[in-house]
Design a protein around this nucleic acid. Structure first.
Lengths: 214, 214
DNA sequence: GTCTATACTTGGATAGAC
DNA sequence: GTCTATCCAAGTATAGAC
């Protein structure tokens, strides 16, 4: 039954609404929001433009649905890591952070069509859309803020905010260059996590063990 | 005289073309490319839509001009650092990288209207626009690729590429959150440079000297 | 649930007067 | 150099038949 949950379980083939949503996510990602017409979208799912309004009340509503699902994926991934560590011993800071970075990147790329919109088209989305989705985004960001504060207790809040935004930038930009087909998401995750924690300048755990000399 | 150079020297007030370019850059940044109409743009500079075509042959040409100027600013900033170090002793790797990161971020934010387009709207720009601007972007990226290879000689090429893309992501995303009015560009530059080189996990030079413990 | 037909709006671009 | 007027294309959204 169609809960708002991200997990897709199409009983038969797939509901009309679901097929529209998937097609919209894909088109919005590749071409952008305004650039995508309802006519194109309808054609993708074998319908006519007018029929879309039976499933969604407007084009904006469609984008909102896409972005909501995208953020649901991200939150679920974050919570997955939290639960994974809940059972274990008090987790080592670096391992914990690495696990979250990996989870973020996997969720981002595994559900690319839905999640990428937050990177590429949230900023210029219609006011009504941004307003509707903002609480979900704030919620996700708050989890990361708490995580970083927890893992870097000595840092002033200003540093933490900037570090989080820098890390998000590094991770999310990968939407635009990381080819998921080549399965390098995990490699990038390891690299960026090590870089974030150890830096690149000192002898750090890496593919080639650094000499420690600069 | 109107060379393609980024440096602006309006002899009188400012040429029509120049005023249009500035207004376009601003509008494209705030609202997006398709969302901005030539009618709005014309109104900004006190003209009518039809008059725009005396200065630019199409809307696409306008965007190309904005992006070209933006990239010119970035390249000039990079070269500025190169020259600065050319006169000095063989530069320390960390200082050199920090200088380039700072220059990149300053150029990015000081000329925000022109440079931000490369972050926010290049990806979904019309094919013709991307094609026209790509060589300039490739040129700039090549400089960074060389810089990183120079500064991190032990790293495999795959690492270097990903590190560069991660760093670009972190820096460029600041377009979307860093309020230039508050003059925190330099602080972010110092923070991100230190983070990139030393990491956040060990006792690194920072606002609060880390204890080295996690 | 999906179709056809259409109303309504907006935008890029051109032509020719001033 | 700028204006007015206009052409033409495209898009969102609605109404009502099937």
């Amino acid at each position: 039954m169609p809960t708002a949950t991200a997990s897709s379980n199409p009983t038969e083939t797939q509901s009309g609404r679901e097929r529209i949503l998937a097609a919209a996510a894909q088109r919005f990602l590749e071409a952008g929001y305004v650039e995508t017409s309802l006519r194109d979208l309808a054609a993708d799912v074998g319908m006519k433009a007018g029929s879309m309004y039976y499933h969604f009340e407007s084009k904006d509503a469609l984008l909102i649905a896409v972005l909501e699902r995208g953020m649901t994926f991200m939150v679920e991934a974050f919570e997955g890591v939290v639960e994974q560590f809940a059972a274990a011993d008090p987790p080592d800071a670096e391992r914990r952070l690495t696990a979250h970075i990996t989870a973020h990147l996997r969720a981002l790329h595994d559900n690319r069509a839905f999640t990428a919109g937050h990177v590429t088209l949230f900023r210029t989305a219609p006011e009504a859309v941004r307003e509707a989705v903002l609480p979900l985004r704030d919620d996700y960001e708050a989890r990361w803020t708490d995580l970083l504060a927890d893992v870097l207790p000595d840092r002033p809040i200003g540093d933490l905010t900037m570090l989080r935004l820098g890390l998000f930038g590094a991770m999310n930009a990968s939407i635009e260059w990381l080819d998921t087909g080549r399965g390098t998401v995990d490699r990038f995750a390891r690299l960026i996590a090590a870089q974030f924690w150890y830096g690149v300048g000192s002898g750090a755990p890496s593919n080639t063990a650094g000499k420690g000399k600069r």
